[in-house]
C-alpha cells in the first residue's frame, strides 16, 4: 500500500507523538508513506475567514499538484487538513467552473493538477484499505479490559457525510479500538466540538467543550480518550488543567492519539509509543499492559 503523506503543520510541532507513532505503525502495517515534497499549510479553519474560500482552496491545491506525480492517494491524519484537501480535490473532480479557474491560477506558477488522486482520512485508510482483520492479526498485546472513549471530533466524519461513516455517531473509530482488544465505551459526544482554535482567543470556550467531552468519557468509565485530530488531542490534553480549575474537576483523563494505542498493542518499541509527549500522564491507565516510563 503506497500513499502520499500530508503531515500538516501540527504534526511537526504540537502533535509530534502523532507523527512518531503513525510512522512506526504504518511501517509495521506495510503502508509505504512518501511525504509530499515541499508541501504548504492547508489554511486550517482560518485562511478562508481572512482571504476567502476560493483563494484558500487554490493555495491548498498546490499540495495536490505536488503530490500527483507520485501517483498515490493522499493520506491525511489532521481533520482540518483533511477537510481542506478533500473538499478542494472534490471540487477539481466535480466542479467544472472551479477547475477551470484553479487550473488558470496553478498555471500562473507553472503547476498543474489533473484531479487523479483521492484524499483519504487516516481512519478510512485503516478500516477500508488496511482492514480490521489485518490490524487484529498484528496485535501482539491485546488491550483487554482497557475502556477507551474514541473521540472522532468534528470535521473527520462530517466533510462528506455518510461517505465513509455516520456524520454524527461515527462507528469506524470504535471498530479500530475493538480490533486492538480494547473496549470502546458508548461516549455519545464522540463527534462533538472540542472548542477548536478558540483555545487562543477565548480559552473558556475550549475549556467548557472539553469539560463535556471529559465528563462524558468519565460517565462511561473510560480509562482514557483516544483522539484522531491533533487539535482535539492538544485541547483535551494541554488544556485539561484549565478545565479542572474552571469546573472543579478532580480526576484526570489521559488523552492519546489512537496510533499511540496501536503502537502499544502491536508491541512496537517504546519510541513508537511516544508517551513522553503526553501531558496528562497515561502511565497509570496503561500500567497493566507493561507500559512504564
Amino acid at each position: 500500500m503506497k500513499y502520499s503523506f500530508y503531515p500538516g503543520c501540527s504534526m511537526e510541532a504540537t502533535a509530534v507523538p502523532y507523527l512518531k507513532s503513525f510512522e512506526a505503525v504504518a511501517h509495521a502495517l506495510g503502508i509505504e508513506l512518501k511525504e509530499i515534497p515541499d508541501w504548504n499549510c492547508c489554511g486550517a479553519t482560518v485562511a478562508s475567514g481572512v482571504i476567502g474560500d476560493y483563494p484558500a482552496q487554490v493555495m491548498t491545491s498546490r499540495n495536490l499538484a505536488l503530490a500527483e506525480p507520485h501517483g498515490a492517494d493522499i493520506v491525511v491524519p489532521c481533520s482540518s487538513c483533511y477537510m481542506n484537501l478533500a473538499i478542494t480535490n472534490r471540487k477539481f473532480k466535480e466542479d467544472g467552473h472551479f477547475r477551470q479557474m484553479a487550473d488558470e491560477a496553478l498555471a500562473s506558477v507553472g503547476m498543474k493538477y489533473g484531479g487523479s488522486l483521492n484524499v483519504r482520512q487516516i481512519i478510512d485508510v485503516m478500516v477500508n484499505d488496511v482492514g480490521l482483520d489485518t490490524i487484529k492479526s498484528k496485535v501482539k498485546k491485546p488491550l483487554t479490559g482497557l475502556r477507551v472513549a474514541g473521540y472522532v471530533g468534528c470535521q473527520t466524519p462530517r466533510v462528506f457525510p455518510w461517505e465513509f461513516d455516520d456524520p454524527e455517531q461515527p462507528v469506524f473509530f470504535d471498530k479500530i479500538i475493538e480490533a486492538l482488544g480494547a473496549t470502546p465505551v458508548k461516549f455519545p459526544v464522540k463527534a462533538r466540538c472540542c472548542g477548536s482554535s478558540h483555545s487562543v482567543a477565548q480559552p473558556e470556550i475550549t475549556a467548557d467543550s472539553c469539560y463535556n467531552i471529559i465528563t462524558s468519557a468519565q460517565d462511561d468509565q473510560a480509562h482514557l480518550i483516544a483522539a484522531v485530530c491533533p487539535m482535539c488531542q492538544l485541547n483535551l490534553d494541554a488544556y485539561q488543567d484549565l478545565v479542572k480549575e474552571r469546573h472543579k474537576l478532580k480526576t484526570s483523563m489521559p488523552v492519546l492519539f489512537f496510533t499511540q494505542l496501536m503502537a502499544i498493542a502491536m508491541d512496537l518499541p517504546p519510541d513508537a509509543w511516544a508517551l513522553k509527549h503526553n501531558i496528562v500522564s497515561p502511565f497509570t491507565a496503561l500500567a497493566k499492559f507493561g507500559v512504564g516510563k
Binding site: 515541499d38 508541501w39 504548504n40 482571504i51 476567502g52 476560493y54 483563494p55 482552496q57 487554490v58 493555495m59 491545491s61 498546490r62 479557474m101 484553479a102 488558470e104 491560477a105 496553478l106 500562473s108 506558477v109 503547476m111
Partner: peptide, 15 residues
C-alpha cells in the same frame, strides 16, 4: 516552504 513565492502568487492570482 521553498516554493513560498508560488504560494503567495497563487493567493494573489486567486483573489
Amino acid at each position: 516552504v521553498k516554493g513560498l513565492k508560488d504560494v503567495q502568487k497563487l493567493v494573489e492570482v486567486a483573489k
